[in-house]
Amino acid sequence: MGFLLQSFQTTIAKSVSLSGIGVHSGTPVNLIFLPSDPNTGIVFHRLDSAGAGHEIKALISEVGTTDLSTTLTNRDGVSVSTVEHVMAAISGAGIDNLTIRIDGPEVPIVDGTSAAFLAAFDQAGLVAQMAKRRYIRVLKPSRIEAGASWAEFRPYDGTRYEVEIDFETPVIGRQAFTGDMSEAVFREEISRARTFGFMRDVEKLWAAGLALASSLDNSLVIGDDHNIINPGGLRFKDEFVRHKTLDAVGDLALAGSPFIGCFRSYRGGHRLNAMALRALLSDPSGFEIVEMPDQAGQAASLGAVNAAVFAPR
């Protein structure tokens, strides 16, 4: 195949912590990442939540609002928001099982990228587990449209992203990222791309009591003169679409397993990403669950397995 398949699930080797500020609440928040058993998946635990309903699974079935970020909400109404950057880092690092203890309602924004989360996982180290990794292989095209925007999954011999954005402001314009995704590509080309916004919009959010911690330290900001306010300018000439790709990696990680296929989007965002993933998983004929075989010499061959259908809500 055109990319490296990993046979076994992974988790981190030891616990590691990270602290920061919630971008919308403006309040401090602490994360503790803990190793987790095989087939656990990614699970958040709200330490500040009373009662038994503090566990939130990082799955598309738990996705609630997607207006400014991706929020997960369990059946008890307990939520954790702005999960996309940490989920992108988890996916990019190739982590399957992880417990995330968090003492607030929002994942810290840190510097507006996935880099700090990757650094935490590097510090902890990864270990392979004695359980096969399962993949979602796309079997036929699945497409959704919303006005001028659209997103789709297509069969592909690898894991590929083709993300295109189109803004009227000349500093962004029309940009596209296309390429096969791997740990190296994510780390080197995607993970450091910052979230971005317009100064006029940030001021409106501040007035509404949102984005209270948004700053030049964690956001790429475009001023009223259509120029970038941040000292030092861009990290990449197409940093805007690279961050949109980062968001897509994080949002699609909520499938519960890595996908084999091509994800394409035009003028997308968190809502469109969630809609596309739900559409794919709503049609059992559109995908299959596969894993690497045990036999030596068949590293490029995938075998279909019987597994519960990923049910979007």
Rank of each mutant, 00 (worst) to 15 (best):
A93I: 05
L234C: 12
R194M: 06
A176W: 00
F196C: 00
E106Y: 05
R235S: 08
E55H: 15
A151K: 04
V309M: 10
R75G: 14
T82K: 00
I100H: 08
N273R: 06
S214G: 15
S25M: 00
D251S: 10
L18R: 13
V127R: 08
I32H: 10
I260K: 02
L234V: 13
F236G: 10
T66I: 01
F310H: 11
A296K: 10
R200Y: 04
E164K: 15
G269R: 07
A311G: 09
A115F: 06
G261R: 03
L234F: 00
A211W: 08
G261A: 01
G147N: 07
G197K: 02
E84L: 12
Q9D: 01
E84T: 00
C262A: 13
L216H: 10
D166K: 07
F167Y: 15
E183W: 06
G147S: 04
Y156L: 11
G53A: 09
T159E: 09
A304W: 04
G64K: 06
H270Y: 02
V138C: 02
R137F: 04
M292F: 00
Q298Y: 02
K14D: 03
A13G: 10
S81Y: 01
H226N: 13
T113Q: 02
I42V: 15
Q298W: 00
I12Y: 01
G197D: 03
V110E: 05
G92D: 08
G158M: 07
R160A: 10
F310D: 05
P141L: 08
F196R: 06
A276C: 14
L246H: 05
A211T: 09
P170G: 06
L302E: 08
S25Y: 03
S142V: 15
A253F: 02
A311Y: 02
R278G: 12
T82I: 02
N30W: 07
K57C: 12
